[in-house]
């Protein structure tokens, strides 16, 4: 039980996120209206994804420098839950865009680059599954993982800001970003990021442990 304190923390933070995120006062901004509460659910998916994929990249580097397959297992488990968060972020973003922008997909720079970013990671999964030798799979997908991460950062953070994007926080739209977040939103937002990320790590951990059992049974 002592080792599982962070799982309890994740559950507590997420229950707090749902209660406080839905019920506390929020700024009354036009266009956004109540959807500003998506901050604690949609935006946190992307923050969680970036943290999980950073972990995945770090383990890819660790695998490449050591050749220890356990690091490769950790890398793919974190990448899978990161990609799950990314897909959820994209789908919730589309639902929101339908009501805020009038269309599921309006080809906004933020939407397009998020989709490209996910496609790169889908390619990573396909690449992994097409290789059968474990060491070869680990090395090739490890290098791909680092490139995918290096492509994700400009795709999500820089390119959408160089053009006019409709996304809140970009191009003068009423919104929020990491820096000018309102203090009352922050009280929910930061715990929400930690809670969702821990849930992603938990899912990755389950996958990793089942993989370790499979390996132990194979030996």
């Amino acid at each position: 039980m002592k080792k599982n304190w962070w799982k309890i923390l994740a559950i507590a933070l997420l229950i707090y996120t749902i209660l406080a995120g839905m019920l506390l006062d929020v700024p009354r901004l036009s266009i956004l209206n109540e959807t500003i509460r998506n901050q604690h659910f949609h935006v946190t998916m992307w923050f969680g994804m970036i943290i999980l994929l950073t972990g995945s990249m770090v383990y890819a580097i660790k695998y490449l420098s050591s050749g220890n397959l356990d690091f490769d297992d950790k890398s793919i488990a974190l990448a899978n839950s990161g990609i799950l968060f990314g897909v959820l972020g994209l789908v919730t973003g589309m639902l929101w865009a339908k009501y805020a922008w009038g269309d599921w997909w309006s080809g906004d720079p933020k939407q397009n680059s998020a989709a490209i970013c996910l496609l790169i990671y889908f390619a990573y999964q396909i690449l992994r599954n097409s290789l059968t030798d474990e060491q070869q799979r680990g090395r090739i997908s490890g290098v791909f993982n680092i490139f995918a991460y290096a492509a994700m950062i400009p795709l999500l953070f820089i390119l959408p800001r160089m053009t006019d994007s409709l996304h809140p926080g970009n191009g003068g739209n009423p919104g929020f970003n990491f820096y000018d977040l309102d203090s009352k939103l922050r009280v929910v937002f930061y715990p929400a990021v930690i809670g969702w990320t821990l849930l992603g790590v938990w899912i990755a951990e389950l996958k990793l442990r089942s993989k370790r059992i499979t390996r132990a049974l194979e030996d």
Binding site: R28, R161, D164, F176, D180, D182
Partner: peptide
């Protein structure tokens, strides 16, 4: 990169939108 993208933000918009107390009491927004 985070700092750089923030700079790009302020370049793009001229000045940032910041949330004030008035936004919490604004009754014109549904």
């Amino acid at each position: 990169l985070a700092a750089f993208s923030q700079e790009l933000d302020s370049l793009k918009t001229g000045e940032k939108y910041s949330i004030t107390d008035a936004d919490y009491n604004n009754d014109s927004v549904e």
